[in-house]
């Protein structure tokens, strides 16, 4: 390749990367400013660098309880999703059975259905069960899109494991649960990681159901973030800090599954 061919491409790439990073940088920049500075002057770097916005979030119960609620919801949801999805994904990847393709398609449709469609009945259902404004209600509601997603991702990873391994293990006298837990699971732990990551992501960010099914006790951070208008106008700095903090858990999880993210996206499964 000669230079006059690659140059425009590199240039394009650089421009895109700037476009991709600038908005994120702006938010981080803002989270270290005071509200006065944000509104009065226009700067690329914080003039009066401050941690106050983060302090507010960590000391004000209405903020930090949002994070705790979110974490509880996501943890419940992730555990249930992965636990029920593992055997199902194994079944889909290893056997063919009556109606398997249709079942798989049906699961997929649930991943694709807008949560708004289920909004009304969920409200009624959880009111009837007396679960309104509890963590478990939101966690269960999020199963509707996370379980199919987990099955889908795990099935992809499991299909990559040769079937001979199963057969050899059965010949060696392993029972199914023992084989699954001691041999198979370690082989697909990357897949479990990726599936868990995406369950985490989608449950962590889901706004509509979470906002409707909670009011005070179980209100997750995404719902808290939509009401930052105080008497003094918008609290931009705190909002920016909250936004940065919302990215952090995701970033930590990404670190553990970084090698597989591209694969997860590339399979078109998300």
């Amino acid at each position: 390749m000669n230079d006059n061919r690659t140059l425009p491409r590199t240039l394009f790439l650089v421009v895109y990367i700037v476009f991709a990073l600038l908005p994120i940088y702006w938010m981080i920049n803002m989270s270290f400013k005071t509200n006065e500075e944000i509104l009065s002057s226009f700067t690329f770097f914080p003039q009066h660098f401050t941690w106050d916005n983060y302090k507010t979030i960590f000391t004000d119960a209405s903020w930090y309880s949002g994070y705790i609620n979110s974490l509880i919801i996501v943890a419940i949801n992730m555990t249930i999703s992965i636990c029920v999805a593992l055997p199902a994904a194994y079944a889909f990847s290893r056997y063919s059975f009556l109606g398997d393709k249709h079942l798989f398609f049906w699961l997929l449709t649930n991943r694709m259905t807008p949560p708004a469609v289920f909004l009304l009945p969920f409200f009624q259902l959880y009111t009837t069960l007396g679960l309104m404004d509890t963590h478990i209600a939101v966690a269960l509601a999020h199963l509707v899109f996370n379980v199919p997603l987990a099955v889908w991702i795990l099935e992809g990873f499991m299909s990559g494991v040769p079937r001979e391994i199963d057969e050899t293990a059965y010949i060696d006298g392993y029972s199914f649960p023992r084989f699954f837990l001691t041999i198979f699971l370690p082989l697909i732990k990357a897949g479990v990681g990726v599936a868990a990551f995406f369950c985490f992501m989608f449950s962590w960010v889901e706004l509509l159901l979470a906002r409707t099914l909670t009011s005070v006790d179980a209100k997750p951070i995404v719902a808290t973030m939509t009401r930052t208008v105080s008497a003094a106008g918008m609290d931009w700095a705190t909002l920016a800090a909250a936004g940065v903090l919302t990215i952090v858990p995701g970033a930590i999880v990404i670190w553990f599954v970084r090698h597989y993210i591209a694969k997860g996206f590339a399979m078109g499964r998300v």
Partner: peptide
């Protein structure tokens, strides 16, 4: 490049 995909959607709105 993948970064923006992994940002929570409501934070995308906030950003």
């Amino acid at each position: 490049v993948a970064l923006s995909l992994l940002i929570p959607w409501n934070v995308v709105g906030t950003i």
